[in-house]
Write a protein that binds this DNA or RNA. Sequence first.
DNA 1: CTGAAAGCGCTTACAG
DNA 2: CTGAAAGCGCTTACAG
Lengths: 350, 350
Amino acid sequence: MAHTMNEVAKLAKVSPATVSRVLSKSPYISADTANRVMAAVEKLNYHRNVHARRLAIGKSDLFGLVISEIANPFFAEIIRGFQAAAWDRGFDVLLLNTEYDDKRTEAVVQKLVENSVRGVAIITSSLQDSVISTLTNKGIGVVTCNPVPADRLVSTVTIDYKRGLVQAIEHVASLGHRRAAVIAGPQTNRTASTIKQALVEGLRQRGLDPDPVTHSDYHFDAGASAVQAILSAKHAPTVIFCGSDLIAMGAIIALEEAGIDVPKDVSILGIDDIPFSFLVRPALTTIRVPREQLGETAFAALDKMLKLKRQRGAEYVVETELVVRKSTSPERKFALRQKATLLAQHDVET
Amino acid sequence: MAHTMNEVAKLAKVSPATVSRVLSKSPYISADTANRVMAAVEKLNYHRNVHARRLAIGKSDLFGLVISEIANPFFAEIIRGFQAAAWDRGFDVLLLNTEYDDKRTEAVVQKLVENSVRGVAIITSSLQDSVISTLTNKGIGVVTCNPVPADRLVSTVTIDYKRGLVQAIEHVASLGHRRAAVIAGPQTNRTASTIKQALVEGLRQRGLDPDPVTHSDYHFDAGASAVQAILSAKHAPTVIFCGSDLIAMGAIIALEEAGIDVPKDVSILGIDDIPFSFLVRPALTTIRVPREQLGETAFAALDKMLKLKRQRGAEYVVETELVVRKSTSPERKFALRQKATLLAQHDVET
DNA sequence: CTGAAAGCGCTTACAG
DNA sequence: CTGAAAGCGCTTACAG
């Protein structure tokens, strides 16, 4: 169906080798020949077959990106950053998601190898660390967000939550809060544990020993039910640190439905700064994870490592940051409301 | 670096052809041979090179999916549905996003052809209808969400907004609203225009002639600023239909900041039911677009069409539906609040 | 600056 | 049930 290089060659009256050279922008091609070839290419609307190309080249122009859930907004900007960086350098991205399914996870590794990707960024802990050596043994570069030591063909890019957490604790302490609680992410999750520890320690050092410290999964409902435990505690906290924005939103809504005023009675902090979290009301103060930058850094790490003679990996870190958001104050709202009501009445009368 | 079929053949003491047959699950292979081959495959941890495979087969096992923005949550579930359907049938997905950039859009078409995808779903209007023939001329099946006539190798899957809009209008009318306004999506957008027209007509028929009818782009800020125009109108509306959930959220927040009580003073309706829209407070009533289903349907349409002898396309429609969400009533909130306050005081005293 | 030829790693009629 | 051989559409030393 589609045209081949041979047809282009015939039309341009050159050899296929020459067509290939023109298309690959090789130097040492006379302008005249190049023009003839390009004319033929355009006339036939010819496109090279990448499969043949990749086979001949011996390696592909593909990089893999492995995430867990495609529909999780946490990953959207990571994909975007990674992909943009790859495209910029003329590479394509093979996006693979495990959906936390074992069969799929296996298939993901297979696809990475089959497609002879040059490198892969693994931004999920649903791939065991053991697959790393499976990949590097085949010469595939790996960058992972898991805390493994850098090695030949292995780099890491991790998220440093400390900075954002410290800022958050300072912020809360300076606001005069005295009683804190924590709703951490799932107990089985490495990142969630790290964050929980850092939070508990940090708060303690500031004299804000958190209580209770509960767990939940990363989802909305869990945030809501964790709030129940907190509400029934002896001393109600005035601030609740949540392990993710979704947990925080669940908590906010559960609190409001219980008649607790957020942030007047209790303040809520999230983590992630997920898309649209700025739309949440009452406003959600959160710790921003620079996801697009994470994606870009992951690609840059791969690209750089693969160009090294020894292909030695390196360790990269992206920093988090507190984002303080304030709702309009109730007083101001009330004043505005009066005015609006007057206006509305006026409307009706005219 | 990676092993080849030849090495496997040697190890298993068979010909490469036999290895290929075993791996492709061809019948007519003795169990004994198959076992020897599989043992060799496992021993070497061998994976076929897909590029060689695709070249030999003459077609790829790839389907394209073209969207505009990877970070737009509207697309996340579409991707998910499409991808799941493709994986189920053993196909891979090449995800391409235009990001509304002309150069990228051009590159997208090129990549589709280069990769000799079997078919492509175009779920964005940033690709001109003219590229459809470019693709079908190369034997690539196309399914688009644009309202083009079905043809050889061309199917459509469109979103029927009518049903959801009619339900929404009924709902609003039955609630006794008398004055409506509309903040439609961008004037240049085909879908937005269709929706606007349907809304205006539908409301008129119900005696709810909307006024004003304004435009905005699909983003949050636009929703907020559009509200200004509405607030300064002579007769304030009691219900505002928004062209998307994001517009609606912008409107809600702008209204609240202006001291207008949503939904007491004015009700807001969105469209899309984007992820997490159920978390918005005050609760957002919206029209659900079945995005995951849209993705699945798009793939199924391609798959079916390509299996037809004549490869004639068909037209598919997915239906929208009103989703009514209610905030906790202010009265109930107040009652709960009293109770919580009492509890809190009790805490402090103990 | 250009061409003839080998080779990339598979698949699949064709023959047996 | 299995093998030898041709071919998929490119690229790239090698030679000129």
